[in-house]
């Protein structure tokens, strides 16, 4: 063999310099680059929430904070009928809103993913536009629609369908639910759409090939595979809506007040920070538990039917 893999000449003895491991330097670069953002998020998100947590175990006497640990705030938050009421209603509303939003949004996400053709992006854009417009104005719009002298009533009356305004449209939980469902529609569609897009279309064909009807292939293949999207849609709607402030204030009336109003009150005139903190923490924990249970239930149902 003319030329072989051979040793280089002896004077080229390979150096063995102590080189830093690449993974270590990659790790360092990554951390260095993310550190400004992380620092920001820690100091203005994580830290504040920890402080809320701390406050919830303190108590307040007029303007002085007593740092002796107490569970009194939680006792009030959990057992005071008014707060029980508010928290209960907030949970029910957020549960209903998230379930309804996901249920009515799923077909849209499915439609865009399977029948959106070349214009999927345009469809998605059209879905998201209303979501980015002012939240206040959207809520106000619903007030205009549902009001006693509102669009729906005056419209129905001028169309001759009713001869008296329907008084029960506005200022109750239903109005809150409708408004919130409208506000969060796009947030539910996007994650579901993403998970539908990830489904390999040949899986559906395989299910059909193996004897499933269209409906069966949907229930046994598409639905289980889009479950991650459904779950994130539920979470992304359920958790934020529990603490919604504007919607109950504007369209909820007495009947639709939610916990956020009570939390806000503790930071407003009747300031009781520790109680407000305890209400916040309680809300977060309870809604997380409810979200967890909902996800669990959903997984069980899907496992059953597939």
């Amino acid at each position: 063999m003319a030329i072989t893999a051979s040793h280089a000449p002896a004077e080229l003895a390979p150096p063995e310099p102590p080189r830093p491991r690449w993974s270590a330097s990659e790790e360092a670069s990554g951390l260095a680059l993310i550190s400004p953002t992380l620092l920001y998020a820690v100091s203005l998100l994580a830290l504040p929430i920890l402080i809320v947590f701390a406050y919830s175990f303190w108590s307040q006497d007029y303007l002085t904070i007593d740092r002796a640990l107490t569970l009194e705030n939680y006792r009030t938050a959990l057992f005071e009928p008014m707060y029980q009421d508010l928290l209960g209603r907030s949970l029910v509303i957020s549960l209903v809103v998230s379930l309804v939003t996901v249920a009515i949004s799923y077909p849209i996400a499915w439609f865009i993913s399977f029948h959106g053709g070349r214009h999927k992006n345009l469809w998605l854009f059209l879905i998201t536009v209303p979501c980015w417009t002012s939240y206040l104005l959207r809520v106000m719009s619903w007030k205009v629609i549902l009001g006693y002298q509102g669009v729906l009533n005056t419209g129905l009356m001028s169309a001759g369908i009713t001869d008296q305004p329907i008084a029960s449209l506005l200022y109750n939980s239903n109005a809150v639910v409708i408004t919130l469902v409208h506000s969060w529609a796009a947030f539910a569609i996007l994650p579901i759409f993403v998970s539908l897009e990830k489904i390999d279309r040949s899986l559906i064909e395989a299910a059909r090939d193996l004897g499933d009807t269209r409906l069966m292939s949907f229930v046994r293949v598409v639905l289980p595979l889009s479950l991650p999207g459904i779950i994130s849609a539920l979470l992304i709607v359920m958790i934020p809506t529990v603490g919604d402030y504007v919607t109950p204030k504007l369209v909820g009336g007495k009947d639709g007040v939610m916990i956020a109003t009570a939390i806000q009150a503790q930071f407003g005139k009747g300031a009781n920070w520790p109680l407000g903190a305890a209400l916040s923490v309680t809300t977060m924990i309870v809604v997380s538990a409810m979200a967890g249970l909902t996800v669990l239930a959903l997984k069980l149902v899907v496992r059953k039917i597939r």
Binding site: A41, V42, L45, P48, P240, V242, I263, S280
Partner: peptide, 24 residues
């Protein structure tokens, strides 16, 4: 974890973010 923290406001009631910031 870092990504989770940065994305957390999407999964938090806004009022709680607001209240905690106000306190700080």
């Amino acid at each position: 974890a870092a990504n989770g923290l940065i994305m957390a406001p999407l999964f938090l009631p806004e009022i709680i973010v607001a209240v905690s910031l106000l306190m700080v």
